[in-house]
Amino acid sequence: MGEPTLMERVKSRIGWRGEEQVNLVEAGHVRRFCEAIGDDDPRWLKEAPPTFVVALGTETPQIPEALEYGKGWLNGGDRFEYLEPIRIGDEIRTRTVLTDVYEKRGGSGGLLFLIFDTEYVNQHDRVAVRVRGTRIRR
């Protein structure tokens, strides 16, 4: 039995859960987010646009073992499932879980895929949005 490989060590982190975060959906924050996208639909004066949830405390979770792989992060993709609108003034609880890790090897080297699931729960204890993010080390 030798030392565990890097892949074994990263895989052992499946099930990692981030800290729970609670954030108020603030009008100014939503406005700045919409300005950054360039979306001036007046609908976003009351409601958050579809991708706003990512701004509620979800910097790429730091899994130290993953940082030993490759030189940097790439974003592979995101999937959003919408159950309820998120409105200005809502209080949203989030927690991110690392649900899968796998490697793909190609001609130009390896890629490490990390799958993160995040639920956004509102002040009525109902899941408003679910997001599955695929983050890649290469």
Binding site: F33, A36, I37, G38, D39, D41, R43, P49, P50, T51, L74, N75, G76, G77, D78, R79, F80, E81, Y82
Partner: peptide, 24 residues
């Protein structure tokens, strides 16, 4: 975010976005 804007501006406030996924 750009693609979400494309969708919501085309659909209007009556339609409800249920799921949205992107691959970069």
């Amino acid at each position: 975010g750009f693609l979400a804007q494309l969708i919501t501006s085309a659909v209007g406030s009556g339609g409800v976005l249920r799921s949205f996924e992107v691959t970069y």
